[in-house]
Simulated assay, not measured.
Amino acid sequence: MPICGIISFRKSKMRLEESVTRIEVIRKIAENYAPNYDVDAILQELSKES
């Protein structure tokens, strides 16, 4: 999955603070809130995952 069409997700993981696994969880949860992306609801759901 390219980020900005330049760097692959796996290659860019070294630049990220979160693990690839955690980012996948965030992405899957965020998809449920598209296209408006309610950040508070996403964070609340993420806190249940931890």
Rank of each mutant, 00 (worst) to 15 (best):
K13P: 00
D40C: 01
L43N: 01
C4D: 09
M14N: 04
N32D: 04
L16A: 10
A30K: 14
I42S: 09
F9L: 02
K28N: 15
S8F: 02
K11W: 02
S50V: 14
D38R: 04
S19P: 09
Y33T: 10
S19R: 06
E45L: 04
S50H: 11
F9A: 03
I6Q: 11
I42T: 05
E49N: 06
T21R: 08
T21F: 09
R27G: 05
I7V: 05
V20I: 10
V39T: 01
I29D: 00
P2W: 08
R22W: 09
S8Q: 04
S19D: 14
Q44T: 07
E24F: 13
D38Q: 07
G5I: 03
N32C: 11
I3K: 08
N32T: 14
D40Y: 02
S19H: 03
I29V: 14
A41L: 09
D38K: 11
V25Q: 08
E45Q: 15
I3H: 02
V25F: 05
E18Q: 10
R22I: 12
N32L: 13
R27I: 12
I23R: 13
V20Q: 14
P35G: 07
R27T: 14
S8R: 03
I42F: 09
E49I: 02
I3E: 00
Y33I: 10
R15P: 00
R10T: 14
F9I: 00
E24C: 03
K11H: 00
I6E: 05
R22T: 13
E31I: 11
V39S: 01
V25P: 01
G5V: 01
D38H: 05
K28C: 07
I7F: 04
K13D: 12
